[in-house]
Nucleic acid binder design. Sequence first.
DNA 1: TTAGGGTTAG
Length: 461
Amino acid sequence: MNHFRRSTRFLNVYICSLCKSQQLEKAEAALIDGIRIGYLPDTTTYNTLIVGYASSVGFDAAYSILHRMREAGCRPDVVSYNSLISSAGRCALLSKSLELFEQMHQVGVNPDIWTYNTLMNLLFKYGKPEEANRVFCWILSNNVAPCATTYNTMINGLLKAGYASYALRFFRSTQRCFGFTGGIVTYNILINGLCELGRFGEVKRVLKELDELGTTPNVITYTTVMKCCFRHGKFQQGLEIFSDMKAKGFTFDAYAYCTVISPLIKMGMAKEANECMEQMLRTGIRFDLVSYNTKINLYCKLGNLEGAFRLIDEIEKSGTESDVYTHTTLVDALCKNGDIDKAQLHLKHMEMRGFKSNLVACNSLIHGLCQAGQVGNAMKVFKKMEMKDSFTYTSMVQGLCNAREFLTAYKLIRTCLREGMTLLASVRRAVIFGLRVSGYKRQARKLKSEIRMASVYRYEG
DNA sequence: TTAGGGTTAG
């Protein structure tokens, strides 16, 4: 008996390593070979396959393992259900996750703290913070012991839902009532959430608290603060953090590299970004989709569009699906290159592949059409767009000014202001100047005063 | 089997 148990354990370890490297066919073959020579698969074997199928194929494939498991006489346990609940959530199937939670009760499998943590996380992720909070209260009232992940999930979810003050109060109360001190993960969650909300004073206080606790910041802490600096225009400070990380000997992962490469591209420092990318390639890091998208963006900015398109094949060969970022980056590059026809063709290609029309791609197209002097065509795209933002209006108004259609630009800019959006100052000035020199002095005065009023309103708001 | 950082447009 012990012999079989030990052998099954070896079989499970082997199947697990195959699943992790996405070799599902080999994992299935190992299972068949194992049975043939008398190593009976157990619940852990099938749980391993659930995780393998969930990460490489998808929820349905993972769910089908549950039936195979029962047919083989193995009873699904809490790990089987937790893995499936999590997989359904990753595939945007929240109702399926909740269904599986119900099913657990019906078949007599008791949920554990992992089940509740996963559910809470999914409820926050899909915009249901009240329900996530109800799960937390349920945990407490039913004497299930929360763990660090439970508190961290609550803090993260509350911050992402915009309840920063409540998240901080929640953290303080877990410290007081449950003796939860919080570790580096908690502090990283707090720093990231507060950075996203622009509450830099509190970020500084949290960083100080981390230091006082004697906890060493890790690569995630640094990456988070660095991104925050770049996002708020503090490029020099961001680059200093990057140098500091190198000096301290941090091992850079794909997240850290992408965090620094993208702002370098944005700042027009393509040469430096390329050096950083080459460094990233030298480390042999496995490229995931975001890394590939960053590389595609870099190639586009270096003018290597052919190389950028070749990278799509590389992505697909690596077994990853390209996404809306991949294609939108290419549409923008084609527009900037003046290849408007190719950009429009690529947009059609995106639609055929099931990508919905997206704001960024339309904005790039409007900008490209205006730059190419096709203001009429740009206006057609503009009118068809269901959603517009300040980028849309800025490009369109700029295009109209270049075409000396100041009255139309005047009407658009007023709509934009009414909707509470801002335009680049240079574009606002161009419209006012254009109106004046074209003899529309009254409209120019009116617009100037409306712009002033809108800025006062925003300031007071 | 659960929680934290990275990608596109004016």
